[in-house]
Structures are given as structure tokens and as C-alpha cells.
Design a protein around this nucleic acid. Sequence first.
DNA 1: AAAAGCCCCTGGATGC
DNA 2: TGCATCCAGGGGCTTT
Length: 271
Amino acid sequence: MPELPEVEVTRQSFADQIANAQVLAVKLGKPLRWPFGVEPQTLVGQTVLGVRRRGKYLLADLSGGLLLLHLGMSGSLQFAQALPPAGKHDHFDLVTTLGTLRLHDPRRFGAAVWASGQDAPVAQKLLGGLGVEPLTDDFDALLFWQALRQRKASIKQVLLAGDVVVGVGNIYASEALFLARIRPTTQARLLSKPRALALHAAIREVLGRALEQGGSTLRNFSNAQGESGHFQLAAMVYDRAGQPCRVCHAKVAMLRQGQRSTFYCPVCQKR
DNA sequence: AAAAGCCCCTGGATGC
DNA sequence: TGCATCCAGGGGCTTT
């Protein structure tokens, strides 16, 4: 469900409220993507120092280690002083003195994993290969172009891979490529400098705008307070196969790349 | 090293 | 209404 903007909106919606809380209990439901890693008891008594985001991971710094959370495809977080009893899709509760943080995830592609520290093997494995954060100054246009020049795969798949730049999921990849007028199947290495720079700007534009809107185009997205996004961002191409391009009115096309759907305008995105 | 496939899981939409 | 099929916002792992 969540791409970078949704994860960041989620983070912002509870980070300040959970800061300085003490962990009272950890409750695990059905298995998520990976085992939690330690006895839940380990966290009891620890203090929540803050919540960061890296790519689509949320990182809760606790006094005794790092709690990694991922929303997968269908996950969402809720934070409230009191929550109803866990339902069939609630698989992780962090009960604290200031409220309970709950991970709800029907498909269970999400994760809650304990890493004793920043350099713990689990954290290394999950975070070590991640690309640059697109909304920070680290996302340098020229370096982006240079990284793309090394890659023979299609630009869409390079964006999704997350080892060059993080946070661009299946929706925003199509949207950013549309904005930059680049055909998703184009080999990344073939992008000229100006076109790579246009894509760099498009990624920032698309993600930044979605973030400002509080969570974008996603159908079911809501933050940890249960507030939904503003739904003001109509997708230009995503999920619009066969419908007229909003710019040129040609029919939006769909194709599969790596078992994921890609949408583009064959006229606006010629190569 | 990089790319391509596979797979984890459930629910909703669609078609017969 | 019932059942089968397909599809979904992610990404690590294994195989080429």
C-alpha cells in the first residue's frame, strides 16, 4: 500500500506522540514477513527515543536497540491511547505508557523486527543496500544520472529496485516517468543527461507533492491517527489503462515489468 | 555485479 | 449465491 509519502505521513502522524514513552508490553499476532527476533519481553521497560524513516522502513529508536517496521503492501499503523482488542489482521502491538502502536496488515508482507543496534546483522541486511533518500540533498541529480548509466535494466525496474533511490514504488514510478516523458522500458543507461535530470526532478515533484497532500492517490491509505489522505492527486497514468492521457488524450497503455503493472502514455513517453 | 523470476499472504473484483 | 481466477501499493532470496 504505502510508498515513501505514505510511510512518511504515517511516521509524522505519531512520532511526536510516542516519543519518550516507556514500553509496557509487546504483543505479537500471526507471523509477519520475518520473526520478531527476540522475546517480546526484551523491550519492556525501554524508552522510545524517536521514530525515523529510511526508504519505506520505519525505525523506532529504543533505549536498548532498534525496532524496524515495514508496512509491506497492505500494512498500516495506528497509534492511540486505547485501541480495541486486536483483530484478525492486527499482528503487532507496541503497548506504551503513552499509547499503543498497532500494525494492521492483512497480507502480512509487512514486518516488525527487533535489531539490537544500528549495525546488527538484521538491520544491515535490510537497510544496508538501500539507495539515496529522494527528498534530501543527498539525492544529487548528476550522481543520479551517473548511477543510471551503470544499469542495463529498464528505468522502471531500476527505480523500483531501490538501490539507486529509495521510496519510489509502483505507482510513483509510473507517475514520475510520465512527468519526465520517459518510456518505462527504456534502458536506464541510455538516458541522456538532460533526461536523467528531468527524471530526478520528476521524482522529487511527485513524491513531494504526495507528501504535502498527506498521503496521495492511494485508495485506502490513512495515517496512524486514522485520517485519510486528501485524495487530491489524480494519477496521470497509474491504473488508467485504456483511458485518455490527461495531456494528449491518447490511450494510456499498460504492460508488465517484473510481474508488476506499468502504465504510460505511448505518445507523451516516446522513448 | 547485475538482472530476472519466485514467492510470501489475504481480500476484493470479475466472470461463469 | 457459489466458485474459480486474477490482481494488488513490496522486496528479499535464489537462480541465471
